[in-house]
Design a binder for these strands. Structure first.
Length: 420
RNA sequence: GUGAGCGUAGCUCAAUGGUAGAGCGCUGGACUGUGGCUCCAGUGGUUGAGGGUUCGACCCCCUUCGCUCACCCCA
């Protein structure tokens, strides 16, 4: 590998074959989300660093160590967006979207950045497909959002995915549980790992989803957050569960599920896939009622999810319709003394008539050109030789059938459409 | 940020410390304007980089860069 110039660590190139799958997945997302009344929002890749510090939370790993932050020429601290909920909320406030009918349904698709060591399913530039429902207190909105998510995944060809569901309650419930959990863990503090001991001070809830087998064992009979819920939180969660059952959406209660971002409250969820490695979460989401106010906006409740597009596609079922390859264009090639320009012209004629076509630009034998056309996967080749040109005709060869006919060039397009 | 594994042709991989190879791909030919199968030829490399040990290093040692996977955490 002599190449001196390489892509930046944690970024990757998607070549046409793969990019086609991505485009197909995104097209399905746009269609399904639009069917639910969601409108696309495109916010900048670059935001004021302060937005994420205040929005995502100072104690989170994202803000603490994963942000792609740098100063611009005027010394302003900018950050490549590590997620989009905060930017969408910022935009909502800045553009005065509260004056539009509520709730607002918004979705986004695009690249995000986190400065982490890359591994399977994790890149420094990764892509998210997300949706936000703003101005609805739930839980019906949460249920609608999950229904849309499940429908989207179903249309991609996913079948076995299970929604993992939990609630982290409202602020008061969470504060109460935090103390309960701390009281439970404090006596066994020395059996916790270094990370968990630190989190005992900063954010005890996140000890719950520790991967350490020893800690899991320890936590198996820890008090559960569900039991510390305020009546209002309980009602919210019961409402959500009831709605999911009514809509026929399967889910599994996962009491240890806690989301890593500070802004979550009430119902939170995750979808994981066994087709991935250690980074197996394809979707994460939940309610974030306090975020809008925290960012200086109106006190509006909101809920949303983010899909990891890279992981979604890595785990995409073989039979997914998004993997379907479009038919290769008809190949037009010049033979004999006919100039490639005549092939270009004929290809233009075909395109004008609605037939996808490529023109061979010359420089090689008919055999080589034909071989290349065959390997491109095309079914039809149009041969333009001296005789055909003189007669205003062209030869249409069907590579699959192995036969060919010569016909007038104005009949070509119709014949190809008819045969394919 | 921490740990482990791996870097040989565009790709997948060989080569006991002793002349760097194969398959696939790509290009051309066998077949003056007809693909797939077959055969032939061509194209291919500072063995990631730098240093060391040695008569001699793809191979052993050190450094460095890169990739991969895992931890942390998340999509």
């Amino acid at each position: 590998m002599a190449g001196r110039l390489r892509g930046v660590k944690g970024t990757r190139d998607l070549l046409p074959e793969e990019a086609g799958v991505w485009a197909a997945v995104e097209a399905v997302a746009r269609r399904v989300f639009t069917d639910y009344g969601y409108g696309e929002i495109r916010t900048p890749l670059l935001e004021d660093t302060e937005l994420f510090v205040r929005g995502v939370g100072e104690t989170t790993d994202i803000v603490g160590k994963e942000m792609y932050t740098f100063d611009d020429k005027k010394g302003r601290s900018l950050t490549l967006r590590p997620e989009s909920t905060a930017p969408v909320v910022r935009s909502f406030i800045q553009q005065g979207l509260e004056s539009r009918p509520l709730p607002q349904r918004l979705f986004y698709i695009g690249p995000h950045f986190r400065y982490e060591r890359p591994q399977k399913g994790r890149y420094r530039q990764f892509h998210q497909i997300g949706a936000e429902l703003i101005g609805d207190p739930g839980p019906w909105g949460d249920a609608e959002l999950l229904a849309m998510l499940v429908r989207f995944l179903g249309e991609l060809g996913y079948e076995e995915l299970v929604v993992l569901l939990n609630t982290v309650g409202d602020d008061a419930s969470r504060a109460a549980y935090r103390e309960t959990l701390r009281a439970f863990l404090e006596p066994v503090r020395d059996r916790l790992g270094e990370d968990s001991r630190r989190r005992l001070e900063t954010n005890p809830l996140r000890i719950l989803d520790s991967k350490s087998p020893a800690e899991r064992e320890l936590l198996s009979d820890a008090p559960r957050l569900v039991d510390s819920l305020s009546p209002a939180s309980r009602e919210h969660f019961d409402g959500l569960r009831g709605a999911l059952e009514r809509l026929g959406l399967a889910y599994r209660l996962e009491p240890r599920l806690v989301r890593g971002l500070d802004y979550y409250s009430h119902g939170v969820f995750e979808i994981v896939s066994e087709a991935l490695g250690a980074q197996d979460a394809i979707v994460g989401g939940g309610r974030y009622d306090g975020l809008m106010r925290q960012l200086g906006g109106p006190d509006l409740p909101a809920t949303g999810f983010a899909i990891g597009e890279d992981r979604l596609i890595e785990a995409l079922p073989e039979a997914s319709p998004c993997r379907a390859r479009p038919a290769a264009p008809v190949a037009v090639l010049a033979a004999g003394a006919v100039a490639p320009l005549a092939a270009l012209e004929l290809a233009e004629l075909l395109r004008g008539a609605g037939v996808a076509a490529t023109a061979d630009l010359g420089g090689r034998s008919v055999r080589a050109a034909l071989k290349r056309a065959d390997r491109s996967g095309t079914r039809f080749v149009v041969l333009l030789g001296d005789d055909e040109l003189a007669a205003g005709q062209a030869t249409l060869r069907d590579l699959a059938a192995g036969d060919q006919t010569t016909l007038g060039r104005d009949q070509l397009a119709a014949r190809i459409k008819e045969a394919s």
